[in-house]
């Protein structure tokens, strides 16, 4: 018998799965949302309920962030966890368009730092990548739309990671993603 696991899940507004369109039952009156059991294999939402650990949060950003409980044997994916059933525990309110914009800005700064450390023959491309990061962060900042903010954060984080990869290779890429996850964990108050 396996222990329930607490993990995280980004969803679209209304607790809707971004790929499945599935509307997750929300917590009510202090009670966790009802358990959702995965249907059989086949289709884009095949074979399981998905969530992620803190370290993979930067990869899955959407408008809402939820703490979830997974039940049953866990199957790790590349950057996610899959289980037979799961339920929403509570919404992490501190993840908001404002936080997303702040994160986007922070990542744009990181991209610029990485680019500044580029070798001369790669400086131009690295600067271009970082500039794209800045553009996306600015777009997010200027928008009142929750999607634009969240998406800006996702893209900005990707750009920072790829700039690090370009300039300094795989280790730097991993370190950048770890930095991003730490930033989110601290800012959202979801440390272990």
């Amino acid at each position: 018998m396996s222990e329930p696991t607490v993990a995280f899940k980004f969803l679209r507004p209304g607790a809707i799965g971004p790929f499945s369109g599935f509307r997750w039952p929300q917590p009510e009156g202090g009670e966790a949302g009802s358990w959702v059991e995965a249907a059989g294999a086949g289709g884009p939402c095949a074979g399981g309920v998905h969530a992620c650990e803190r370290r993979h949060l930067p990869l899955w950003i959407w408008e809402e962030l939820w703490e979830v409980e997974l039940d049953g044997p866990l199957e790790p994916g590349l950057a996610k966890l899959r289980a037979r059933r799961g339920r929403l525990l509570h919404r992490i309110e501190r993840w908001s368009p404002l936080t997303a914009k702040s994160f986007a800005g922070a990542c744009a700064g990181r991209a610029a730092e990485h680019a500044a450390a580029a070798r001369p023959d790669e400086a131009r491309v690295a600067a271009g990548m970082a500039a794209d990061g800045a553009t996306r962060a600015n777009t997010a900042e200027a928008s009142a739309d929750a999607y634009v903010a969240a998406h800006g954060a996702a893209v900005s984080a990707y750009i920072a990671a790829m700039t690090a990869l370009r300039v300094a290779g795989r280790e730097a890429f991993d370190a950048e993603r770890a930095w991003q996850a730490d930033w989110l964990t601290a800012e959202l108050g979801i440390g272990v």
Binding site: F19, W60, I61, L78, A157
Partner: peptide, 23 residues
């Protein structure tokens, strides 16, 4: 392959990761 549910798990996940950030 994605719409038909024919992608193996690993590839499916990478597609999803990409879709998160690619408008």
């Amino acid at each position: 392959d994605y719409l038909e549910g024919a992608l193996p798990d690993r590839r499916l996940e990478l597609v999803e990761q990409h879709l998160v950030m690619c408008d």
